[in-house]
Design a protein around this nucleic acid. Sequence first.
DNA 1: TTGTAAGCGTTATCAA
DNA 2: TTGATAACGCTTACAA
Lengths: 324, 324
Amino acid sequence: MVGIKDIAKAAGVSISTVSNVLNGKKNVGEETRNRILKLCQELEYYPNAAGRGLKRGNSNIILFNFSDFDRSFYLRIINGISDYVNQTDFDLLICTIKSCEKFMRNNMTGGCITLDIGMENEMLHRTARENYPIVVLDRVIENPYIKCIVVNNYESMRELVQGIVDRGYRRFGFIGGPEKTDDNKERYQAFLDVLNENHIPFNSKNYFSGDYREKSGFTAAKIFMLGGELPEVLVCANDNMAIGAIKALSENGIRVPEDIAVTGFDNSDLAEAMGLTTVDIPNYERGYLAAQYLIENIMGKRNVELFRISARVHWRNTVLGKSK
Amino acid sequence: MVGIKDIAKAAGVSISTVSNVLNGKKNVGEETRNRILKLCQELEYYPNAAGRGLKRGNSNIILFNFSDFDRSFYLRIINGISDYVNQTDFDLLICTIKSCEKFMRNNMTGGCITLDIGMENEMLHRTARENYPIVVLDRVIENPYIKCIVVNNYESMRELVQGIVDRGYRRFGFIGGPEKTDDNKERYQAFLDVLNENHIPFNSKNYFSGDYREKSGFTAAKIFMLGGELPEVLVCANDNMAIGAIKALSENGIRVPEDIAVTGFDNSDLAEAMGLTTVDIPNYERGYLAAQYLIENIMGKRNVELFRISARVHWRNTVLGKSK
DNA sequence: TTGTAAGCGTTATCAA
DNA sequence: TTGATAACGCTTACAA
């Protein structure tokens, strides 16, 4: 491996001169600078991250953490993060929950964006600090170094459910996500509130608790089918579960939307392809925003005000129209 | 930030003793070891990666590089990689092409898996070295430190095209991927060879060169439609383009498969949902394998033999059956 | 404009 | 069983 020493030797200067060139200091002669730069290219010199990081004590790498490989919207979020990062001189690194704490604490990165059910609030509180800001998606957490970006789950689920009510549906089933997550809580609460306001009864036996994976939606639908009378509509806390439910229903000859309506949440690629009525979360945009806020906070701006992103209902054909 | 010094001070020992404990050396008294370990927990000590990396000169982090956020199969590959890595004491870090070379060269990682069109062969040759093995997916490249894992594109595309011929189709169109990629070359060559063996003429005006994105399949189909007589079947070098093509066709009232058949390659989530005939690439498995080979090579095994993974055709309903 | 030298947090060698 | 110390590659005062 070629190091700063090799460059210095080849250029016939001291290592500090090389270092000054590499760090854009202006106290180096024009000719010397060019000679050194050229040598770095030729010898393929890349500064050792450890040496540099050790000395500088900071890093311009940001971390994105996620661990759910079932949901394609993570790619869109990464796309947004990546596009923003590429406009700056920061680098992006992505990790899973297994190593996230290590990478947050060992000074390799300067801040983190996280969207991971496995990430404990307590760990975030422990880790966020003056020079390690964090951006959290889909969760609200009070901390002077943590910026939260959430989707207006409540409002958009209200809009969806009210729309379903307006279309004449009365007997509802709900397939929820992991109960501890804020987004699931908000979606479910909105669902309950709208039914309540419309004086539509909801029997909690029509609530099924899933885990946002397709399989749990599949199971939920199976169970609903065992339970005798099916609801008229299955409101699902995300698209994956809605798709699982549709598969289970169609395996049993139950047609969507003729026999039962189904809705999702996310607007995944699959939802679009299948014509699922759902709520569109602007994933690219929130990735982009998250990266922007994180980097600004790393640079010293201290902005941790809660940010709410609007999602919008997409009516497609898994719910019958007003004509019902 | 709490460092080894703080632990040493708190425990009333020297930093070398703490270091010995952290590195599992057995030359430390039982009582001292426990006391130190307990303190590390209590004080939330995490070894500084820079200091450690600087001294050790190696790393047990592996890197995965990709930059295409349009294709969900990357998540499955990551899933496979992650699952293997989690069984070891290595960590996984993911980066895009922008920073990949930096992370490969600055000693932060111990090896890399890459699946990125933007990654130049020349860069791989420059970077792979004795203590920096690389695993490359979807590309064959001769280098003593690079292991290649490829899909049997040629054989599986042959099987697909022969099957289409057997079903009675004669007038073919082909929507290709980026021309410089090996996988696209192989898929196209298989296509040509099978037609040739069956004495079926192929006019190169029925070849369209895309970029593996949905939009280019969409454009391709539009162009085919402008060209007057449509082929009987559109063989696409991947699913995304096939789906784009289907969208363009159906926008123009052309039905699949009644008016034209379409096939893809990848077996993406969408392909499954839409019933697209395609070739299933075992993505999870090749991610898992890639991680395994990489880590073995980092540990000193020098295995760079070309590995071919079998893909299988999934006949679904975008091609008419034998009855045609 | 350039060079010398201290120090970042850790590990490894050697002495106690 | 433990501790002092050099070294890893780099940046940054400060000296020349």
